[in-house]
Write a protein that binds this DNA or RNA. Structure first.
Lengths: 164, 164
DNA sequence: GCCGTGTTGTAAAGTGGCTTTATCACTGAG
DNA sequence: CTCAGTGATAAAGCCACTTTACAACACGGC
């Protein structure tokens, strides 16, 4: 059941973050954008670094950056030391959104601390950190679950049969 | 950081499950199928119940069931008491896959227990259960993060500008 | 018995976050 | 100066979903 135990809280976290962003006026942010906006944020790094971090291809990251740039959350400026590279920075609007995210995390944690009790909450945090340091989690930390099929053939399209 | 602390382990869990399934010969299972195969499995329930459970639309669930039926993991049989309804059951192959999943979970938990120590591992389990019982997680437990946009306009397609 | 309303399953089409594939620009080692 | 490698990104495709639409059935009220 370890799967469900982890999945349900993380879903709740993302749902809350998205709601708060929307309520704060950032109505054009979607869940996928978290790959860029979440801690530690772009902070002048290159698109390929962000892609690596998010466990996705450069192209996918670039697609997100294209959206976020058009929506005025980030800018891509050329790297003076390497003319192939770009550096991604949060815009003013991007910084404001990131601040909303951070404050939402703080609020969630405060809420959990209140509901679990301070002692239990801190213990949970400590154990989660430990869990993340295990070889199980660390090992093969690249490429998310939704990677390329790479195994069996695809299953083609469209639901069940119609035989009435 | 609560987000990353939960997300990385769950990703590792799903990655491991998929790998083990593929190695066990179920090469045609993809991550999306877990919505059906994971605990407690279809077990004679209706498609709409499974959809509710997985936090997705009936149609999405039906799409998955169509694939899984074609791949011989489940069957849909008519409910004798309600001729609108279907009942979803695992096939022999489906049962075998579910067994692989359960054994993988057991193996993962054993591995974590070994790496964290029995006492810490049990404590982590206990706290995760508690976490899942909080109002924060329980409240609004329907509809996953990837729900309909329902807010701001879409952002149209295709990465950055080409201006070279 | 019919009739309107709700429920169930599912087909069909559209959406969007990804992938793979393919270029182009540039860098750095030889 | 090559040339293999790296970075960004365009283009096309995939597929797990969504919304929309509808047909079959259940069921309570008349």
């Amino acid at each position: 059941m370890i799967g469900a135990l982890l999945r349900q809280p993380i879903d709740a976290v993302y749902r809350r973050m998205l709601d708060r962003l929307h309520d704060a006026g950032f109505t054009d942010v979607v869940a996928a954008h978290f790959a860029v906006l979440r801690y530690p944020g772009p902070a002048g790094r290159r698109p390929s670094e962000l892609a690596e971090d998010a466990g996705m291809s450069n192209q996918a990251m670039n697609y997100l950056l294209g959206q976020l740039e058009r929506l005025d959350y980030v800018t891509r400026v050329e790297d003076p030391t390497d003319r192939r590279s770009k550096r991604v920075q949060l815009t003013k609007r991007g910084v404001a959104a990131a601040k909303t995210i951070r404050s939402t995390v703080a609020r969630i944690e405060a809420e959990l601390e209140q509901q679990l009790g301070t002692k239990e909450f801190r213990e949970l945090q400590r154990l989660l950190v430990q869990l993340n340091e295990t070889r199980f989690v660390r090992g093969g930390a690249d490429r998310g679950v939704r990677g390329p099929p790479r195994h069996g053939g695809s299953v083609s399209s469209s639901g069940g049969k119609r035989d009435r």
